[in-house]
Nucleic acid binder design. Sequence first.
DNA 1: CTCCAACTGTGAGATTTCTCATACTTACTG
DNA 2: CAGTAAGTATGAGAAATCTCACAGTTGGAG
Lengths: 224, 224
Amino acid sequence: MEEIFNLAEKQRLIDQNHFEDLFTTDIRPLTKLFRMPANSFIIKSTSQPQYLFYLIKGRAKLYDVTANGKTMLIDFFTPPCFIGEMELIDPTGDPFSVQAIGDCLCLALPIHRIQKQLLVDPIFLKHICLYLAHKNTRNIRVASKNQTSTLSERLAAFILMTEHNGVYKEKHTEVSEFLGVSYRHLLYVLREFMDAGLLSKQGHRSYLIQDRQELERIAEGNQS
Amino acid sequence: MEEIFNLAEKQRLIDQNHFEDLFTTDIRPLTKLFRMPANSFIIKSTSQPQYLFYLIKGRAKLYDVTANGKTMLIDFFTPPCFIGEMELIDPTGDPFSVQAIGDCLCLALPIHRIQKQLLVDPIFLKHICLYLAHKNTRNIRVASKNQTSTLSERLAAFILMTEHNGVYKEKHTEVSEFLGVSYRHLLYVLREFMDAGLLSKQGHRSYLIQDRQELERIAEGNQS
DNA sequence: CTCCAACTGTGAGATTTCTCATACTTACTG
DNA sequence: CAGTAAGTATGAGAAATCTCACAGTTGGAG
């Protein structure tokens, strides 16, 4: 994680992402700009973060590490969004881990300097409430879908969600973690889709969608 | 759902639960007191709630109804806690269903009257943020435990969580819904616990814990 | 007191998912 | 360019979980 001291660039990014609109007071003087290299940790579950981040470029992923050491991919972050707001609001809880997927850019506010002020800022708090409520809704929907449906349904939905121009090319290792199934089983179902003519392999690690309509039907839960 | 017009009683409950402390302004004049009979719906997923509720007595459960009609028990509410705060903050989203388990008492504020005011009340917003953050953390932990561990682990943990004086007597139907497994499978694992000498049946629908230490070990993930 | 809906309980067979073992390929590091 | 870690790929057998079918029990509602 490396700070970028280009003031003009920082100001441009603040404006472009309407960062100021999230606060009552002027936070520009305290705002820093960071670049996180791919795969680096923005927040480590082992220590309280020093900053409240606002992701403006790149993707990141949220992990939970369960008591028995198993790691579990919980969610993806897509800009623009806060990172570390839970830790700001409740510094007593254990933080989660957030890892950059590709290179990321973040605006950042030093927690120790602005915590008191932000916790009484109604505009900021309202944004955080909305953000948390949405996140919560998403989590609940995803969790209940995970429990009530089989991998075929979830995978079909996931493929449709992440595909670009009819091409699906996510990393199997990440996907199996995210969908909470073993790598083996993911491959098995992917093979089923290919046998059923829904997908075809294209080159080494990308798949071509052959029957979008059927994929959609499966994702809806109308298992053939 | 039936309003209770006993002013003295209402005031007593407001004081006892420190309801006023959650707001900057005096909300007593607008506060109503409701009694919900067991099994009635406090919030129905089909229509926006009219009130922001604060549960002060009784237990309630949160359901999600998935697109394909499957129903899924997400969480339990224990007093004191807000109900309907997500719908207050984001009236555009689909509401969830909340059903009273036993008879419940709720303080309630009419949303159409206080929404604007509450959304700029820093004290209220801060409480909601904290509440949402905690809820979120809980949901994530539960969801990731659900995915990474087998029913034995989750059931062992659930038994220890809900037991009183060494006796476990939750309804199997509710539990299987909550843990997201079929009724059949729950019974199957329960039988395994009995065969392994961890539980014994006591009367018609209650179980006696025989080996708490082993249950704890299993709950931690140290599957024998 | 009777009846009915909801809950408890069990068997059998099918489906989903996991673990482990084993190769091959790719991408990066020195 | 060799070496290595990570990702891809597949088989086989086991474990977890589901569906369906069927019966007995219980706790109210009338």
